[in-house]
Amino acid sequence: MNPSHGGWLILLTIALAMVLAIFHVPESWPQWLGWLRPAWLAMVVFYWVMELPHRLGLISAWVIGLLLDVLYADPLGLNGFLLAAITYVVWRFYERLRMYSIVQQCIVVFLLVLVTESLRIVVQDVAWSRGWSWGVILPALMSMLTWPFVYLVLQRARLQVRVE
């Protein structure tokens, strides 16, 4: 991620996604609201890999995930692996994904987030016996619903700054 050619925009959006990822409602609110958090970082990585597969690769995705591991107090490497997995899938099919309509992209985002969130909860269950919950479907649904906005904002920002 070279800061020139608008690389700073990539870094900035990733930092913003991280802030959104740890932003929380007041703690006295019901706990299940936490399930409604979209997978911001996964979406931002998804966008950049799809549009500029030569700028954001497996290693950078893994490093970003490592940072998220620390923020979420997950086992080190878990989010790195999940983000790298998303990156691989998107990188493999980016030409096709760009041609998809926004609805089709939403479905892809839904499936990717569902799979990664399920994997996360399985790993947490193995590591700390946290148990399993149907709640995992909520982040996937929320990501699907927010994807059009994320896409629009990032697309506009990218064209404005001319990130290449």
């Binding site: 932003f23 936490g34 107090a73």
Partner: peptide, 11 residues
């Protein structure tokens, strides 16, 4: 200074 926002982690 912050809470870990994931539902099942109380940190």
């Amino acid at each position: 200074l912050g809470v870990v926002p994931t539902v099942n982690t109380h940190q």
